[in-house]
Design a protein around this nucleic acid. Sequence first.
DNA 1: CAGCTATTATAACCTGGTACTAATTATATA
DNA 2: TATATAATTAGTACCAGGTTATAATAGCTG
Lengths: 199, 199
Amino acid sequence: MVRTIERLPKRQRHQQLSRLIDENPFITDRELTRQLKVSIQTIRLDRMELAIPELRERLKLMAERSYDAVRSLPLHEVIGDIVDLQLDRSGISIFEIRAEHVFSRTGIARGHHVFAQANSLAVAVINEEIALTATADIRFVRSVKLGEKCIAKAYVRSISGERSKAKVEVFSYVGDEMVFQGHFVIYRSTGETVIEGGI
Amino acid sequence: MVRTIERLPKRQRHQQLSRLIDENPFITDRELTRQLKVSIQTIRLDRMELAIPELRERLKLMAERSYDAVRSLPLHEVIGDIVDLQLDRSGISIFEIRAEHVFSRTGIARGHHVFAQANSLAVAVINEEIALTATADIRFVRSVKLGEKCIAKAYVRSISGERSKAKVEVFSYVGDEMVFQGHFVIYRSTGETVIEGGI
DNA sequence: CAGCTATTATAACCTGGTACTAATTATATA
DNA sequence: TATATAATTAGTACCAGGTTATAATAGCTG
């Protein structure tokens, strides 16, 4: 194991290689030889050492990731994971604030994501075929930050007979701190199923 | 052009082929020969006729799509396309309701997407480093449906000096019908830049 | 100089195709 | 029934973008 001062060029090249592939996963080894001025064999040895798969494998992995993402999009139906639900009474959901939910400069969650969790919970807790938000009166008590887990609790306050509206209150917490509260009025249209655009 | 009654088997196969590739884009021609019991040349002729690219092209296209999606995620910062913006005065954004925004059984847009458009426009129109929604009072006037284009118009109603709050009204329309209205109070913290989670 | 790492070269082989030519089979219509 | 036409199958050459393996060369260093 000879370890001298000048063993950098390889490491530097490895870094550059990682960076290049990272910022353009569609690059071929041949392209990389041109950019890094080493033989194609060196590139391939480097990829080996760095455990970077070949172009086609990279594309396949990306395709698989996006395919899975599309498949799990129906999960997008409700924002947050519902962990408890008593129809027409109450419900609880958990929503973790991730990078895609925050203002990138501040790491503070955009209001509509916090709202979305509360709104979809308020709709879910109503035991009806079709339930739509009519009005909402909301307050963002304190900002929610990247990585925090937002726990929303919904309570159905009143259901006007078998009629059209229900009132739902939602409170969202991070730990024991309330971060959001909202009063929702939800439309509940029981009978008619007016679906259009069939086939 | 001979057109008789019994020219179906090919069309049927084409349909099956399309379906198979659609539900598993990762399938090779060789696999397809096994499933459809025809030669690999037939499979390839069929793909030609149907203009279905080869496996590797399909994966590359999927990878590109997802890569673009990730790259344009910062565009996710604002929901809807802002088409006009006069800072501290008014703004307009357009948001097309797509399949991922609606209740699948009814084709009616989920409230939080309509809200998200209005909310992000209300925040965008405020000319400040950091602007956060404090409260909102919203009303969903009529439901918005799949395929409709939602046009939100925001008006800044008052700015309390150089202080902390601004009032913004947002009205959303489909055509000339108002579908949503909201009164937002937006926090505007000028000076302090309290960013955490650095590196 | 020996010994070591790093790099480059060379060749065989692989997958999943395209492009092209040709033969075979099925079908339909005059 | 013959024959034109369409559909299918077969076979070959070639390609990109690699892997695997084996060997040669360069460069330093003690």
